[in-house]
Design a protein around this nucleic acid. Sequence first.
DNA 1: TGATATCGTCTGTCGAGCAGACGATCGCCG
DNA 2: CGGCGATCGTCTGCTCGACAGACGATATCA
Lengths: 181, 181
Amino acid sequence: MSMSTRASTVRKPTAPAAAHEHAVPGPSLGLSWSLVALLREWSTRVEAATEDLPDGMRGYQVLRVVVHDAPPTQASLAARLGIDRTVMTYLIDRYVECGFVERRQDPADRRARRIVATARGRTKLAEVDVRVADAEEDLLSGLPPEDRVRFRDLLERAASSITEDDDPCGVVARAATPPAG
Amino acid sequence: MSMSTRASTVRKPTAPAAAHEHAVPGPSLGLSWSLVALLREWSTRVEAATEDLPDGMRGYQVLRVVVHDAPPTQASLAARLGIDRTVMTYLIDRYVECGFVERRQDPADRRARRIVATARGRTKLAEVDVRVADAEEDLLSGLPPEDRVRFRDLLERAASSITEDDDPCGVVARAATPPAG
DNA sequence: TGATATCGTCTGTCGAGCAGACGATCGCCG
DNA sequence: CGGCGATCGTCTGCTCGACAGACGATATCA
């Protein structure tokens, strides 16, 4: 769908815990506001939970994919997570340094490097996973348990519906439709 | 809670729509993944919807507060949205240039400038609001309408529970607390 | 009145992301 | 077999945004 390079400038809001204004707008400033608020808090917490991992949350996402998927190449990782290749290079560098992953020549394509997780990397991920899950549960502590479950479910469905739509051929095509038919 | 300056590095993932790997991990990579995915798509779309506003989505948030609240000072705006004061300065600058807002001396405190929206600013906001709402609705198009409503509701409740918990004194204090000692 | 804190502004520095070029390798096609 | 374009990972240089710090103006308190 090629949103072009346009969208940028969304950098993380810094949030140095500075606010504390008494002029809280109160309720319902729209979906945007809720999402932004939730996101800010979420990223703060997850960032804290992943602080001993290189590149914080982003590195966490990378490690996650590396561990759960078949050893991906740097390019596929980059594409999947929306990270630049050049960035992926030194991101992986740091993970190699820490002994969390290894670069291996793909015997089938000697240009590519397969990124595989070390035992240490897996252990670390498991550990951080717990902290992250914890932080997330904490994040939703304002909701009664049943609603949390519902929320997670809806969120997941919404997200998966997106990642599928990502490809214009997507949902339909995957069955048996010739592209642009 | 003072997360210190630590949490950074969360910059927006670029998302040049490059992926299209067939190795979609399938279901349930956790809340993180869903949130990240949803967020990425959301910010791409909202960014597009707010592209003719200075500073994109962030500027949009600012304008929103300016229009809906009593004229805030730059400092309160900055604190509220987690933006640095020095950044807020030139952000407002641009909005003044565009004629969307005005700076007015606060008669009660001549250091502070009250940011007030112009008629033009209000109009523009209304226009962008529609586009954003549109984009958001589009974002959830993968969910049946009833679920969208439920999702919005849950999201909003989760968010508001957070912004209140934000300040430990928060809800209670808002009644009658002297400003910062 | 003087001391201290806050508001908004300006300047300098730092770091991250991105474009572009490069060597190595693949795959294709003649 | 040998050339040709494309791709992978890397490196380099540039650009842009965030943040620290200093500054004048003003408020507040002693």
